[in-house]
Design a binder for these strands. Structure first.
Lengths: 247, 247
DNA sequence: CGGAAATTTGAAATCGCTCAATGATAGTGG
DNA sequence: CCACTATCATTGAGCGATTTCAAATTTCCG
């Protein structure tokens, strides 16, 4: 199975040699069952990972037992990048589902900056995009109510799944436990439960076993208060870099 | 005045040509008075900025009137980078003090990836470092109490100032209002006030006009619960990239 | 089928918020 | 230099969103 590259093609369509350069950087493939650790907070950092398939969470333990979920990773995401700035990993990567990841050693990542400068710049922009998502996450946790945070979380996942599969409907296969959602939103699992019930009572969502159906996306967006981000596509300052290179 | 480059020299000492390449990318210099906007949320994005001198905040307005402070920028920081992934800026950059910034057009930034690959990789790592700081920020806001968040904020600024000036003592010139601290920590200005008083009563800090003196850093660290990050220095996978290049 | 994990419910406690008002400080222009 | 004004800091009282604790119920996995 090839890893989905939509996260990297989002800003500029890569040339064949760039796709190859990235493929060369991937050294081996690992497979995991649900709830396994891909890497752990505190460990030495030697590689990053490209998520080929499955859902993975990045989380940090803080303050004895409290855990903050930083990010829900979906196929196509790069995992473990933030920790390359550290001697010991900041984040624990844990699978939510069956998952496949490709391992990219840091040396190979660095080499991309020499062999494929525009791909490297694209990767750079992609990391800035991650930063924006993290900023939005912080803003939601810091400034909004429990109901708003839950709506924001539901919409965030829904939107990202739609990018992966434009035909995806309003029903989401939901591998996150209420404890996970609590760790992501900065709430208690108990309060997550009550908030989900409130959303159900209002007719905004329906929970069907491990699925969640979004019944009224516009209303959820209204409550959430967080706007959908519009990311750049093929900006001149990025595409021009490729032209200069091939010229 | 030359911009401090410590944020970029942190991971690998740059060659002369790399420093020059960066200098070439800086096109003009702007000066601001306190409380002026350098750029605003929602505006088109054409440049990033290198902060030469002064303090600047990056913040986002959410949900009608609520504002989240994302980052306190100090000299040497790159400003506005996250928004290069967007068509409209996510963040408003506002000066806290008199400030000087150098403007770097996005075309010039991109060109660095071709002319100075290792510098570009260093910039990439530096952005991952920002991501780690943002993750820590999120973890503090999401999972810790008001007192812990205030300790974390005080220590964060103190540590960063020490990197700028190793001789800096425990007294910090503090241009942040309590409203700013509230927007940074996800608390109310009123509760920030009471929390600062509580820290004063415990003998952990002393407020002297617009200065704050940290009286007991170890105890503050203990309460904060967030460990100080150790960032990589001259890792082989980064320095080796330079050798290959010059070879 | 059995046991662990996840969800749900209720009641009581609390941390932090809201509202409203007063006091201090600093920058501005006359 | 002082009056004027806006911003910032402080205080009190009451409230409320969310947490905590404890226990029952359901779901899921092996």
């Amino acid at each position: 199975m090839d890893p989905p590259l939509h996260r990297l093609c989002e800003f500029a369509s890569p040339e064949d040699f760039e796709v190859e350069a990235l493929a060369d950087a991937r050294r081996k493939r690992l497979e995991f069952r649900p709830r396994q650790a891909i890497s752990r907070q505190g460990e030495a950092v030697t590689d990053v990972f490209l998520l080929v398939d499955g859902w993975v969470t990045a989380s940090m333990e803080v303050d004895f037992g409290h855990r903050q979920m930083i990010k829900i990773h979906l196929p196509g995401d790069m995992l473990g990048l933030p920790s390359i700035a550290l001697t010991r990993a900041a984040e624990t990567l844990t699978t939510l589902t069956d998952a496949i990841v490709d391992v990219i050693p840091l040396e190979a990542l660095g080499r991309l900056f020499r062999t494929a400068p525009r791909l490297a710049f694209t990767l750079f922009v992609s990391t800035q995009q991650e930063r924006v998502m993290l900023m939005d996450h912080l803003a939601a946790v810091g400034q909004t109510s429990a109901i708003q945070r839950m709506c924001t979380l539901l919409l965030h996942v829904h939107r990202r799944l739609k990018l992966l599969d434009p035909d995806a409907g309003a029903v989401v296969d939901w591998p996150l436990s209420q404890e996970h959602m609590a760790q992501g939103t900065g709430l208690t699992a108990i309060h997550v439960n009550r908030t989900l019930q409130a959303l159900g009572r209002k007719g905004l969502i329906a929970r069907e076993g491990k699925r969640i159906r979004l019944l009224d996306v516009p209303r959820l967006e209204e409550i959430s208060g967080m706007p959908e981000r519009v990311f750049v596509r093929e900006p001149r300052w990025l595409t021009a870099l490729g032209n200069e290179l091939t010229a």
